[in-house]
Design a protein around this nucleic acid. Structure first.
Lengths: 172, 172
DNA sequence: TTTTTGAATAATGTAACAACATTCAAAAGG
DNA sequence: CCTTTTGAATGTTGTTACATTATTCAAAAA
C-alpha cells in the first residue's frame, strides 16, 4: 500500500496532452486584449451570436451557449482575404448607397466590376467610390447624391479600377 | 560627479509609457499562434492596410505587402467579445442614422445607454433599434425617419434595454 | 476481475528576474 | 547664466522558474 505507480517507461502524463496539442509559451499581452487573445487561441474568437428580430430564449446571456446563429465578421465580410482591402470613405457623394463620410469600405479586387456595382477607382492618383453604369457603349461613374455630377470614365486620364465594394461598415 | 539623478518625486520612467499605454501580463500561448497573436496585439490603426483618398505606393498589391497584417474586423468592431452580439435590422425607421433594412448591427451590452445613443430594446418580445433621448425626466425612443413616431418608453410594457449599437454593417 | 491509489511526469498560470528604456535633476562645462 | 552630460530611479519586457494542477498507468486493494 506504500508504493504504487512509480518509475517506469511511459509513466506520467504523456506529452502533447494539453489543450492545444502543442507546447505553449508565455507572451506578454496588454490586459484589455487578454480576453480576445484567449478566445482566439481557444478557437472561439470569432463566434459571436446573431439574433433576428424576435427575442430568443436565453437572449440575456450570449456568452453562455449559442450553438446556432454565430457569425464570424471576417468570414462574413471578407470572402477572398488575399484580394481584399479596406478604404476609408470620404465625402457624401454616395449617401444614397448607404456610404457615409468616414465609413470603412470592404473592397474585393477579385470580383468583376459589372454594371451597377459600387466600385473603387483611382482618377489622377485620387481614390473615389462610385456606382458603375455601362450604357450605350460608354462607362459612367454615378454618384448617389443629386448634388454631384456623373463622371465620364473615358474622358479621364490615369484611371484604374481597383475593386468592387462588398460591404460598408458605419460606426455610430 | 558621483551623484546625479536620484530619489525624488517623479523620478524614473513614467507609468503608461509602454507600447500599449496600459499594463501587460504574460499569457501562455501555443507556439504556432504566437506570431498571429503578436501581430494582433501590436496592430495599430496606422499599420492597417487601410487606405485614405490618395493612392499610396504599392497600392496595386495590398495582398502582397499586407498579406499577414490584414485588419481583423472582429477585433476592430468588437471591443468586448463576451458582451457583444449581432442583430439584423428590419425596416427603415433608422435610415437617418445610416441603418438600412437588412443591415447587421453590432451591439455592445457593456456600454452605458446614455442620451443620444442608438440602442437595441425589446418591447413585448420584439427587438427594435432606436435612438435614446432623455428629456424632461422622461425617456423616449426616437426613430430617425419622419414617417415614424417617437415611442414613450415609460408607456410600454415588458421592455428591456439590451445594449448600444456600435457599428452598422451594410452589404451592397 | 475490477476498483482504488499514488508516483511519475506534463501542463499551466503567475511571480520573479535580468536586461533594457525612459526620465529628470544635478553636475559639468562653457 | 545657460547648455550639455551624466546616472540614479523607476517602468517595461521577454523569459525563466516554480508551485499547483492534471493525467496516466501499474501496483495494491477489494
Amino acid at each position: 500500500m506504500m508504493n504504487r505507480g512509480g518509475k517506469r517507461m511511459g509513466a506520467g502524463r504523456p506529452r502533447g496532452t494539453n489543450h492545444y496539442g502543442e507546447p505553449t509559451k508565455p507572451v506578454r499581452i496588454p490586459v484589455s486584449k487578454i480576453d480576445r487573445v484567449l478566445r482566439f487561441v481557444r478557437e472561439r474568437e470569432d463566434r459571436i451570436p446573431l439574433y433576428g428580430n424576435e427575442v430568443p430564449a436565453g437572449f440575456p446571456s450570449p456568452a453562455d451557449d449559442y450553438a446556432e446563429g454565430v457569425l464570424d465578421l471576417n468570414a462574413h465580410l471578407v470572402r477572398e482575404p488575399t484580394a481584399t482591402f479596406f478604404v476609408r470613405a470620404r465625402g457624401d457623394s454616395m449617401i444614397g448607397a448607404g456610404i457615409h463620410d468616414g465609413d470603412l469600405l470592404v473592397v474585393d479586387r477579385s470580383l468583376e466590376a459589372t454594371n451597377g456595382k459600387v466600385v473603387i477607382v483611382s482618377i489622377n492618383g485620387e481614390l473615389t467610390v462610385k456606382r458603375l453604369r455601362q450604357a450605350k457603349g460608354r462607362t459612367w461613374l454615378i454618384p448617389e447624391n443629386p448634388d454631384y455630377p456623373p463622371i465620364d470614365f473615358q474622358e479621364q486620364d490615369d484611371t484604374h479600377l481597383w475593386g468592387v465594394v462588398t460591404n460598408v461598415v458605419h460606426s455610430l
